[in-house]
Design a protein around this nucleic acid. Structure first.
Length: 290
DNA sequence: GTTGAGCGTT
């Protein structure tokens, strides 16, 4: 929802979007509007929020009607302290619903949804780093970026590792429900949230239902776990102890229908390529093995 | 009352 109360973005075309980073989670569009409106005609102020919680995600979009005004706002407000935090103002790189934004944050046209050309709005870090690097170079003030970057990455890796090991220790399946993917932080509170929400959701999405009656699909290769046809085979195999000479015993026990069927199939297959005698021999071997 | 390096409203 935009600052002006309508649902959806207003007047998408021909506006210049600024991305305002590092705002307080309590900062509202109403706080930002007067600040930015000083430098030109602000068409919209929008603060993305977490879908579930409604929390601010810590950044905002301010849309100007005119580029020069937006530019001026960038110059004047980038680095300004708002609500005790030094905000960063820059031209927005991406647009809502994947509009292409030209240089200077102007929304030009919606990107077609086809995959054929261009890239979808995948979160590939590459293009972002471009503008970030450029941007970071520009602002050499504040705490040294290099260290910050390194720390950020280290922190990320650490988090990832932690997550990985956690998920490893908990049974596999790394799938995260899509609702969580776009969530903002990776902070400890998020971990907390995640943990909590998992325990709240009935039967966590990760853990498979412990029900022992998982019928295996008979014609597919088994999913590595659970009751599989292999297990059947083992059972059947276990009927015949390995050490026993099969020849002596074969008559005394009747092979299960499944074994018989398998053998027949095998025989037919073998006979396709070999002459009957060889096929019969091989079959015999197979039966003995079984 | 928490978070934080993040690009979009249903």
């Amino acid at each position: 929802m935009s600052h002006f109360g309508r649902s959806g973005p207003p007047d998408i075309k021909d506006t210049f979007s600024l991305l305002v980073l590092n705002i307080t989670f309590r900062t509202t569009a109403d706080d930002l509007f007067p600040l930015f409106d000083k430098y030109g005609k602000v068409v919209d102020v929008f603060i993305p929020r977490d879908r579930r919680t409604g929390d601010s995600r810590g950044f905002a979009f301010v849309r100007y009607k005119y580029q020069d005004e937006a530019q001026k706002a960038v110059e004047k407000l980038d680095g300004r302290v708002v609500d005790g935090r030094e905000i960063m103002v820059q031209f927005a790189k991406y647009g809502p619903n994947a509009e292409r934004i030209s240089h200077k944050g102007r929304i030009e046209e919606p990107v077609h949804r086809s995959r054929s050309k261009g890239r979808s709005r995948s979160r590939s870090p590459r293009p972002r780093s471009d503008y970030r690097d450029r941007d970071y170079r520009k602002r050499s003030r504040s705490r040294s970026r290099g260290r910050n970057d390194r720390e950020r990455h280290r922190g990320r890796d650490r988090d990832r590792d932690r997550y990985r090991s956690r998920s490893r220790s908990r049974s596999r399946s790394r799938s995260v429900s899509p609702g969580y993917r776009r969530e903002r932080g990776r902070g400890k509170y998020d971990d907390e949230r995640r943990r909590r929400s998992r325990s709240i959701e009935s039967g966590s999405p990760v853990r498979r239902s412990p029900s022992p009656r998982r019928s295996p699909s008979p014609d597919k290769t088994p999913p590595s776990r659970g009751v599989s046809p292999d297990a059947h085979n083992q059972k059947e195999r276990s009927i015949t102890p390995r050490s026993v000479s099969p020849r002596g015993r074969r008559d005394s026990r009747s092979p299960s229908p499944r074994v018989v069927a398998d053998c027949k199939m095998m025989q037919q297959l073998l006979m396709l390529f070999l002459d009957d005698a060889v096929a019969a021999k091989l079959l015999l071997c197979a039966v003995e093995l079984l």
